[in-house]
Write a protein that binds this DNA or RNA. Structure first.
Length: 574
RNA sequence: CGGGGCGUAGCGUAGUGGCUAGCGCGCCUGCUUUGGGAGCAGGAGACCGGAGGUUCGAAUCCUCUCGCCCCGACCA
């Protein structure tokens, strides 16, 4: 039983000045966490209980699916991470340190290497597979910018699992088992979430899905088709290739378009000259970028921006992308800022990437590679060539769903889980092989499955809080019932104590506000801030032989006969 | 790393060269109060982020530095 009279807790009346998002503000105010440094937090009793409740649910579901828990050190020698090139990949995001002998260590940002090496050192036969093991561990990433309190820290708790299979079919099966276990887990945690197609990113691999908890403070943007259920991270959103008309487009013609370095100014001039009807979508935007020191052109419809994140996600292997700067234009005098067209790309040594909307045979208005001049009737395949079609244009609400064509909606979310098929990258790098039934050595294929445990505390707080405080789902609340005793004589305190004991006998955890020196108002405010789902007030209603039961989420209040209070409360929870 | 903002008691804050750094919450003591963050009285608590400088005098001005928050870049 948690007794408020002795609980290590101090709630704050004012919002902390350094907290912006709701979860951060309320978790600090309600005494769940305290900041130690940027992105590094201490967990106080209420917060730690909540965190462990989430861990418990995760463990139950992982164990239930037949996965086994292990525990690796957070402090590791760098060797293995060098073999897989992770030290370079993580770069400054890696917390590095030296031991007294000068040996290089790191605080692990993730543990693929350890899992792989562990399996390698223990197993060597296909008969040992499939295998899925997991851990719940503190991870360290020296983020360039920690933000939003617990949501994005430099130290955080993560559950990570890895599956090991001989075949691709086996990997699919392991992946699906994890997917099912995640669905059960997040359902129990009382979260709203979408399972969304994602890019597997630099890790390689094929299938990849994210579990996203919709919430305005989230950092991820995703699209959702409300008709067919298609959901994808914007990076993974697929664009429908438009039908190309059969009309013959006249020959390319260069026209004078003075002072039209922007799409808007160009459209204005076109409409003046040709009597209207032109929009940005008729023009071709040629965005020049430098990708790992190579010049590239990205073609998108003029009414859209290039989404550099999407572009990068769809250009695997490219590490650094930036827009052309004045210095780059100076080095390439044929490329006229504001008047670039793809017609002479070869001549300029540009690799041309195009949004799928720039389909073969479509005609456009583009820059003429000459100051104050544009070209009309510029046809893809006739007047210019595209080296590759890739998703690179910004995604907008209302874009067509690739599965059913319905306009999609766009929403923001917090990434709380990510499952993906790693394939053989780590197994190859670390030489994890087993003998198959023919006695031949085969590289194992792996899957990787993460849940942000500490982040889930914040995500749930974001999704469930209201104007007066936190509001936990029963499964993870620091207690199931919060009993408030009010009044100045002994009786309500004794009654509250008795109900608490009875509830605990029924298996329900209880927080008891047995403070003698706090006024009722303070106790109510604290109870609402702390966010335990059922609040029982023992006080005035005693005169009629009742206690008052309040549902935190709905604000609903009902009187319950004292005699069967515990039983009634227990019913409310189940 | 670029842009912006901020560092004064546990928390929220006032204080733009002047004398003992002010207020609210919280904390301690006493009395009163007890269904919506109680009242009165008394009290403790601040190297004004740090270093250096200007000045008769610096929380206040200057330089450097450290930290924190927000936007962007970045982010298994």
């Amino acid at each position: 039983m948690l007794r408020m009279s002795t609980l290590f807790l101090r709630t704050l009346r004012d919002d902390p000045a350094d907290a912006e998002v709701a979860s951060h503000r309320l978790l600090v105010r309600a005494g769940y966490v305290r900041r130690i440094a940027a992105g590094i937090y201490s967990w106080l009793p209420l917060g730690y209980i909540t965190l462990r409740n989430i861990e418990r649910v995760i463990r139950e579901e992982m164990d239930g699916a037949g996965f086994q828990e292990v525990h690796f050190p957070a402090l590791l020698p760098v060797d293995a991470y060098e073999q897989t090139n992770r030290v370079a990949e993580y770069g400054p995001n890696l917390f590095k340190l030296k031991d007294r002998k000068g040996g290089d260590y790191l605080l692990a940002p993730t543990h693929e290497e350890m899992f792989t090496l562990m399996v390698k050192s223990e197993y060597s036969s296909y008969k040992d597979l499939p295998l899925s093991i997991y851990q719940i561990q503190t991870k360290y990433r020296d983020e360039a910018r920690p933000r939003s309190g617990i949501i994005r820290g430099r130290e955080f708790v993560m559950k990570d699992s890895y599956s090991f299979d001989l075949t691709d079919e086996g990997l699919d099966e392991s992946y699906n088992k994890h997917r099912d276990a995640y669905i059960k887990t997040f359902d129990r945690l009382g979260m709203r979430y979408n399972i969304v197609k994602a890019m597997s990113g630099a890790m390689g691999g094929s299938r990849s899905e994210e579990f996203l908890a919709p919430c305005p403070t989230g950092e991820d943007t995703y699209v959702l088709c409300e008709k067919c259920g298609y959901a994808a991270n914007v990076e993974a959103m697929v664009t429908i290739v438009p039908e190309v008309g059969t009309k013959v487009i006249p020959a390319l013609q260069v026209i004078d378009t003075p002072n039209t370095p922007t799409i808007d100014s160009l459209v204005t001039v076109l409409n003046e000259r040709f009597g209207g009807g032109y929009t940005g979508a008729d023009t071709l935007k040629n965005v020049l970028l430098v990708a790992d020191k190579k010049n590239i052109a990205v073609l998108v419809p003029g009414d859209r921006e290039v989404d550099i994140k999407r572009l990068q996600a769809n250009l695997p292997g490219v590490e650094d992308i930036r827009l052309f700067e004045d210095a780059d234009f100076a080095k390439n005098p044929g490329l006229v800022k504001g008047y670039v067209g793809p017609q002479d790309a070869k001549k300029f040594g540009l690799t041309v990437y195009a949004d799928p909307r720039i389909a073969l045979g479509t005609g456009w208005i583009s820059g003429a590679n000459k100051k104050d001049c544009h070209a009309i009737n510029v046809v893809n395949g006739r007047d210019f060539e595209v080296d590759a079609y890739i998703e690179s244009a910004e995604v907008r609400a209302g874009d067509a769903c690739p599965d059913c064509g319905t306009p999609v909606v766009i929403d923001r979310a917090i990434e709380i889980g990510h499952i993906f098929q790693l394939g053989r990258k780590y197994a190859e790098a670390l030489n994890l092989t087993v003998l198959d039934s023919d006695g031949k050595s085969r590289v194992v294929t792996m899957g990787s499955y993460g849940i942000g445990v500490s982040r889930a505390v914040a995500a749930i707080a974001e999704q469930t809080h209201d104007g007066i405080g936190l509001c936990w789902p029963a499964e993870i609340a620091p207690a199931k019932v919060h009993i408030v005793a009010t009044g100045k004589d002994e009786n309500p305190f004794n009654v509250a104590e008795n109900i608490a004991v009875e509830l605990e006998k029924l298996g329900l955890s209880v927080m008891l506000d047995d403070r003698r020196d706090a006024s009722p108002g303070v106790k109510f405010k604290d109870a609402e801030l702390i966010g335990i789902p059922i609040i029982v007030v023992v006080g005035k209603a005693l005169a009629e032989g009742n206690v008052e039961v309040r549902i935190r989420r709905t604000g609903e209040r009902l009187d319950v006969r004292l005699a069967d209070a515990a039983g009634e409360i227990a019913k409310l929870i189940s």
